Amino acid sequence: MPPAPSAAPVKMPPSEARTVSEFATDMLRRTTALFLAGPRPASAEQLDLYDQMFARLMPQVATDLLAELSMALAGVERAPYATARLLAVHPELRVAGPMLAKAAALTERDLAEFIRSSSPAHLVAIASRRGIGDSLTNQLIARGFPAVRMALVQNLTARLSEDGYRSLFKIAERDEDLAEKLALRTDLPAKLSRAFVAAASEGARARFIKAAPPATRATLQATPTRTAGAAMRAMWDDEQVKTEVAALNRSGKLSDSAVNRFCVTGDFPAVIAALALLCVVSIQVIEALMEDDRVTDLVLACKAARLSWPTTAMILRARPGCDTIPADDLEEARKRFEKLVLSEAQWKVRGLEAG
């Protein structure tokens, strides 16, 4: 006997489908109103019940209503956690933005996860959170997006570490808008401010000083300009950069990706310290290579440090205070890099120390 034909899926008539959607929309609005009318759910069990109701209704409603729900729950101190996460990872910024910017239900671990995978627009929302801590701001800066950096600098409640400021100052040397916004912050490390004024382009220096508080403006105006190398030395005179890069090296985490990240954030003192450790030469040797218009020995050092060509090219193009390397010269450097043998490169770089 032949098998019975399988039943075709039942398709809901369009009119009935609209009725279900309208019902879900009405129920979601009623559930939201009930939650907000309070008293707020006090127990985890009550919040979980709301999570379950929202989870059933959210897939059946339009994006506009999800945006309404996100706006409504973002300011609530104890919002249903699963609902907050679902809204925060929504691809539409109008849905995710309020949660990312305000929701107290999201933990630091949640936000760190979102920072690793979210779009620049979503990261701007996180950067605007009130009182965001320096661990998260460091991660945001490391993503390398200009709009995110600007949002962080303008968020006067955001806590920035000295490393974070060092990265921002390095980028601001040639970004006048960022330089001006940095000057408006009240928590700038004085030493880094002076080093920035010494190394920045004329335009960035002028806008930073003009926007600075009157009490510090005279001191900054009196700061002499220096070469990029001298300014970088001033930025890590306190040994902090060298200590932190050495700690990465001891833990086995001073890799190509770490150096690439330093380049993305404009942290060239860290790039120099990393190359010195990886090549087993002094910082002075690497610093001299960074300032040399000829890039042959710097390419050698990058090869000796086991860096990839993309990271090497980034270093060559972004060296502070140096002219842009022409495309033809960069291509020649790539060919030399690929022909180099690791052991020979390491031997030659160590010979620069003796020389």
Rank of each mutant, 00 (worst) to 15 (best):
P3Q: 04
V10W: 00
T19A: 15
T32M: 12
L34Q: 15
F35G: 02
A44Y: 09
Q46N: 11
D48Q: 11
L49I: 04
Q52F: 13
R56Q: 14
L65T: 06
A72M: 14
L73H: 13
T83K: 00
E92A: 15
G97P: 02
M99T: 05
A104S: 06
D110L: 03
D110R: 10
E113V: 10
R116W: 02
P120F: 07
V124M: 14
G131A: 13
Q139T: 03
I141M: 11
G144I: 04
F145N: 09
Q154I: 01
R159F: 01
A172W: 01
L182R: 04
A183P: 13
D187S: 06
P189F: 02
A199W: 01
S201N: 08
A204G: 03
A211T: 06
P213E: 15
T216H: 06
P224S: 14
R226D: 11
T227Y: 00
T227K: 04
T227P: 01
A230N: 08
D238C: 11
G252N: 02
A258H: 07
A258C: 07
C263P: 00
D267Q: 10
F268L: 06
L277Q: 07
A288L: 06
D292A: 15
D293H: 14
D297M: 01
V299K: 02
A301G: 03
W309P: 07
T311G: 08
T311R: 06
A313K: 05
R319M: 04
I325G: 00
E331R: 14
E332G: 08
R334C: 05
E338R: 10
L340P: 07
L342C: 04
W347L: 04
W347K: 09
R350Y: 03
G351E: 09
A354S: 13
